[in-house]
Design a protein around this nucleic acid. Structure first.
Lengths: 216, 216
DNA sequence: CGCCATACATACTGGTTGGTATGTTGGGAG
DNA sequence: CTCCCAACATACCAACCAGTATGTATGGCG
């Protein structure tokens, strides 16, 4: 709550901008955590990379843990929301929307090599820290619910097979996205991710009703 | 190569058994790495947990890295081989064999919470250390090849659909196993893994030729 | 019996870690 | 103009880290 400062008539301040300092810290922490994991991301490196001093960090955050929590809530959660929840609000063809989202998964070498921010942190911290686990689980839940919900809508409008269980299918989709992400990350090869995306898209197409298969 | 000692006529020695010391180190290292990841697994904890001293450790291994490599080659690789390669040699029904392997994925709370040793290490270390990456990639490759090979055999004998691309299907299987493992690990809930196994099994059944569907 | 390499055990080091204690500064309220 | 507190900056700390230097016991061989 320290950083949430009331600011009625704020003008462009250069120096001494606490919100900007906080944001720089979050971004630098996110980068370092992405690179080496939370436990191995040293505060000194985060500070060097952000150009912020230790005093400023501990003014804005109580601990390294608190900084990690903030990265989840203020960096990772909005990112996942923008990619896997917002795109499914008010769509005409759910399967097309899902295929679009899958095909928008980044396949640049740097992205493939680094893996998925959400999955990275979940794998590392879920068994070690309940605070991390709960915050990450909220994101996974929102993802799964958004996919299941758009599939259900598709079933109502006839563009998704009725024998598909939306919750199960959403689980399969997420498991495949994260699973292929893992394989591609280990192989350090964008081709693996591209092949995975093709397979996921094929599977998504199989969710359409038999008579309703669109042109491939 | 230090630990590979010629031992023509070895009798049961109690103390001073270098092979046993080495094995205790590998097991303790494997446990600690499983718990907190390689980077955060401290040598002091490994030593305390194994009852071995630092001198003994550095007699058997050149560095922490070398110890990690040995864990991959001598603990993880044989484990994966026993679960995902050996069971597919000389099988009658490939799909049954694959279903069996999937259903044998451990779902006890401790296993689900800890995740998959192979995937854990791959996620953490592949982008950071080529030595880890290569050794882990060898294991993933063997896994994929074993699955693809058994599927190809099934196609020859008519128990697997001809339109299935074995290499692709093997990738899908592994991605789903690892993906669901990740989701279950984050949820810290065996139910998630059990549901995943059911979905994977359903998908495996769909690989049978249409007329050849066994009794469910 | 004596020797000596193997297989350890113990004590220590320089560097890094997250965290703290204390000093400083800028800008808005009065 | 002045005071005060938010927003930092700097210096420091104990704990821990991987790794090393050096000492020592054992058991097989001659």
């Amino acid at each position: 709550m320290l950083g949430a400062r009331r600011n009625p008539k704020r003008r462009a301040t250069r120096l001494r901008d606490p919100e900007r300092t906080r944001e720089r810290l979050l971004q630098a922490a996110s980068r370092e955590i992405y690179r080496s994991g939370f436990q191995s991301a040293s505060l000194d490196k985060i500070l060097a990379s952000s150009g912020v001093t230790k005093g400023a960090l501990y003014y804005h955050f109580d601990s390294k843990e608190a900084l990690g929590y903030a990265v989840i809530e203020e960096v990772i959660a909005p990112d996942v929301h923008g990619k896997w929840v917002r795109p499914f609000q008010n769509v005409k063809d759910p399967i097309d929307a899902l295929i679009g989202a899958v095909q928008r998964v980044p396949v640049r070498p740097a992205d493939v090599r680094g893996g998925c921010q959400l999955n990275n942190l979940a794998q590392e911290m879920s068994p070690l820290d309940a605070g991390f686990r709960k915050r990450l689980a909220i994101i996974f839940d929102a993802w799964r619910k958004a996919v299941a919900s758009v599939l259900r809508e598709g079933q109502i409008h006839g563009s998704v097979r009725r024998d598909v269980e939306p919750a199960d299918a959403a689980g399969v989709l997420i498991a495949m996205v994260e699973g292929y992400g893992s394989l591609a990350k280990n192989a350090q090869d964008p081709k693996v991710m591209k092949a995975g995306i093709r397979n996921i898209v094929d599977w998504l197409r199989s969710l359409r009703p038999p008579g309703n298969r669109k042109r491939v």
